[in-house]
Design a protein around this nucleic acid. Structure first.
Lengths: 340, 340
DNA sequence: TTGTATGCGTTATCAG
DNA sequence: CTGATAACGCATACAA
């Protein structure tokens, strides 16, 4: 390994000067600087980030603790985050919490041991243990996707609006297509996004004069098997629903597959609307009517909030809600538009 | 920050003993050990990975330099890698090369400055500059997805077979469905996987008695616009192809969309087969006939090879090819199976 | 069975 | 404008 002292020796200056040249941290005689730069070139020197971190206390890394990286939705968010973080001269350490408090805590520990300068966390259903560790270490933290009801102190959060967008889709099913038996296949129970989406479902029903208490709501978990089972429970009753609200991307794909196995292809036999959009949704049948989350913006805002807090830790907590956009296609029963 | 000396003071032992207790690196009196563990508990001490790395020369991190994380295919690979790496007690630093030599080099620099213990790289079309930096630093390296023709010394590689699987799909179009005008929409030119897939296309044509030199091959790049343009060039000729080989997942989605805009829905008016599978391909129309890459295995093998090389750097170079599986659905013209 | 001393490569303080 | 020196927190060689 070639170190700073090696460069210093070649350039016939002190290591101090080499350091100052690299960091532009004080005025250096142009000639000296030239000698140093040439010595760096000649030796092929590259700074050791580890040593630098130990000395400065900053690691130039951001930790990302995501739930289920396999979910393409999170893949998009990771992409957006990586882009911004890299542009700011930081690196990204990626961990997966698998959406369990235990693995979440382990992930946080791993990030903390690398002394990350900030953390982006998609919190699990019970993130208290993780929060406790984080606040003791006072690492800047931004929550993503799941915006908690009660705000932890000095912690920011960014997610999307869930209630109103789902309500709007329900209204569409009722007002535009006259459905009165509308059901919901909700994602994992216990997490805030699911609670909000279910609340939005109920709100939408009320607005079109339906009774939320009488509406079928099944929790589909996140595996295709659970979704299939939930759908079966829902359909094998005297008067099954005629329209279905699908709570996220995983539930949507699993539900469409399960419907298909029963010979149902939306909108025929069942109208559907979904939360989360797909890049291929325009070109494949059934063409899904969805609420599309602004995933790129989600990542970008998360990084923005995090860096602001890194600069000013004592800031008041902030939470940001981004608005999804309604992608009206045909699975809800709308006729095919002209351009497609 | 609470350090080892703090713990030592509380436990009334030396920092050396604390270190040995934590690392189990020498025998310690059970009573002393108990005192140390209690002191760790009491102080909330957590080891500083940065300081440890500086001292030991190992960072317990693996660097991942991927092309285009936005591609869901790579998302799956990242997921598989993260899982294995974490289980081995390492962390993953994620960078995106955006498939350009410049950004690739910057990504490698970033990883090197963090002193990663090993690197998984999806090489760009011209990875020589990156290789040069890596070999000077002697960081264990495994190439993923794109297996180079000539093997850099002391470097492993893992990818999938491209030639034979594509040839097999072409044969299927010719033998089972009688197509004689078969075209290919290939991914980004210049990269080895594209070259192999085009070679497989030509090989398949030869096997069914068609002339590869006369077959339309267009490079679709990776943007929907380029794909649309390529498809237009291909179709607006006197006798357009009746079957289409789609070179990867991005090309596939863009091509199906473009076909649809012309009123064509495979297999009607155009038979298609694709490289890369989709989790939703079973449930949405057109149901795509594809070659499915074993992405999980790809990630797992990459990590396996990397850790073997980290343990034994002087190993001969190895390259592994995993076999895709043929998912026969209906976009090629096959009738719908019974179970779907 | 335990402790002391040293150095990993860098940056910050202070002195010149 | 430049340099000597110390310290970041830890692991290890050596000593007791």
């Amino acid at each position: 390994m070639v170190t700073m002292s090696d460069v210093a020796r070649v350039a016939k200056v002190s290591a101090t000067t080499v350091s100052h040249v690299i960091n532009k941290s004080r005025k250096v005689n142009p000639e000296t600087e030239k000698a140093v730069r040439e010595a760096i070139e000649a030796t092929g020197y590259a700074a050791d980030g580890i040593a630098r971190s130990l000395r400065t206390g900053r690691s130039q890394t951001i930790g990302l603790a995501m739930t289920a990286i396999s979910n393409t939705y999170f893949g998009d968010v990771v992409h957006a985050l990586e882009l911004k973080v890299t542009n700011l001269g930081y690196s990204l350490i990626l961990t997966d919490t698998h959406d369990t408090p235990e693995q979440e805590l382990r992930a946080i520990h791993a990030l903390l041991s690398h002394r990350v300068d900030g953390i982006v966390l998609a919190p699990s259903a019970f993130p208290e243990a993780a929060y406790a560790h984080l606040s003791r270490r006072k690492v800047p933290l931004v929550l993503i996707d799941r915006v908690p009801e009660t705000h932890p102190p000095r912690v920011d959060a960014v997610g999307v609006s869930n209630i109103e967008p789902i309500a709007r889709m329900v209204e569409h099913l009722g007002m535009a297509h006259g459905h009165t038996r509308i059901a919901m296949l909700a994602p994992k129970p216990g997490i805030i996004t699911t609670r909000e989406r279910v609340a939005g479902f109920c709100l939408g029903l009320e607005r079109i004069g339906l009774d939320p208490a009488a509406a079928p709501i099944e929790y589909a978990g996140e595996s295709p098997e659970q979704t299939t089972a939930a759908l079966t429970r829902m359909l094998e009753v005297p008067s099954p629903p005629t329209a279905l609200v699908l709570g996220n991307n995983l539930v949507t794909v699993a539900a469409i597959a399960a419907l298909r196995r029963r010979g149902i292809t939306p909108p025929h036999g069942m109208a559907t609307v979904s939360f989360d959009d797909f890049p291929w949704a325009d070109s494949f049948e059934p063409r899904l009517t969805t609420m599309s989350q602004p995933v790129d913006e989600l990542g970008a805002v998360a990084v923005q909030l995090l860096f602001e807090r890194m600069a000013t830790p004592e800031l008041e907590s902030r939470s940001v809600r981004l608005e999804p956009t309604f992608e009206l296609r045909e699975s809800c029963g709308c006729p095919r538009g002209p351009g497609v």
